[in-house]
């Protein structure tokens, strides 16, 4: 518990006494709970931990009509609460407002062929952002989801330097009215979480669900480790491609039809 020790380093003796007093002092420390005491709150079903048995991933169909990507972006904003932080400063600023997922248009300059597709955190198996993070805030869950542990993020932005996909944003302004399931705060880095809070409950990420509701399966989500899952079948059926596969980072997001 380094946190706790550090906490006492900065305290004056007076504060320390006060803390002991508040915490019930030595006397209280001896009080033991009778074993088996039932507490009032009934614990909701505990789920997890995430294990390596799963490898969450996505398959994105770049041949889908362009409009669906705008829908995916809006769904993400609504679910995670990004996209309106500038409301406080009053002006939208494309350069500093976070973008967890964005629509990218590509064109082959020789043939003129075009495509458009969404780009977000690719949830790499060998994520450069995790390697470079000095505190370990940038992390990969056992099931392959790459997250920022905002509790220990110091806002150094080295992960943003390292990410080949520009998938992360830095929160430039104070944030208000965060969603209870997605706490966000100024001075830390954030990005697509593959909607862990939903996935852990057995739901689909918000963008996938929104597209499904609109009758599109342009983004498919599932367990790449399970050969019977829809996504595994699709990945073995179509020739898929991953962005900058040459870098060896092994993204968990596959594309087809680029």
């Amino acid at each position: 518990m380094t946190d706790k020790t550090m906490n006492t380093v900065d305290s004056s003796p007076v504060d320390a006494t006060k803390r002991t007093l508040l915490k019930g002092g030595v006397a209280a420390a001896v009080i033991t709970l009778a074993p088996g005491i039932t507490l009032r709150t009934v614990e909701a079903a505990v789920t997890g931990p995430a294990t390596q048995a799963k490898r969450w991933g996505m398959l994105i169909d770049a041949t889908a009509p362009e409009g669906v990507w705008d829908l995916a972006v809006e769904a993400c904003k609504a679910e995670q609460g990004w996209g309106s932080d500038h409301n406080k400063s009053g002006k939208a600023n494309a350069a500093t407002d976070p973008q967890w997922i964005r629509k990218v248009s590509i064109k082959n300059p020789k043939t003129g062929a075009k495509a458009s597709l969404p780009v977000m955190c690719q949830h790499c198996a060998n994520p450069p952002c995790v390697d470079v993070c000095p505190t370990g805030a940038s992390m990969k869950r056992e099931d392959g989801i790459v997250l920022v542990d905002k509790h220990i993020c110091i806002g150094c932005r080295y992960c943003m330097m390292a990410c080949p996909y520009s998938a992360r944003s830095f929160v430039h302004e104070p944030v208000e009215m965060q969603k209870p399931h997605m706490p966000r705060g100024k001075g830390t880095v954030e990005g697509c979480t593959m909607c862990v809070h939903r996935v852990d409950k057995g739901q689909q990420p918000a963008c996938v669900e929104a597209l499904n509701k609109a009758g599109s399966d342009a983004i498919m989500f599932g367990d790449l480790n399970d050969p019977k899952s829809d996504i595994s079948r699709a990945v073995s059926k179509y020739v898929t491609q991953r962005i900058r596969a040459d870098l060896g980072v092994e993204p968990g997001v596959h594309y087809r039809g680029i």
């Binding site: 993070c133 000095p134 110091i154 806002g155």
Partner: peptide, 22 residues
């Protein structure tokens, strides 16, 4: 220039030894 200079203590107590920064 850190986003969270108040978390200096985190920087000094949590290390990711894979990081060249650490």
């Amino acid at each position: 220039d850190l986003g969270r200079p108040d978390r200096l203590i985190v920087a000094m107590t949590k290390y990711n030894f894979k990081s060249i920064f650490a």
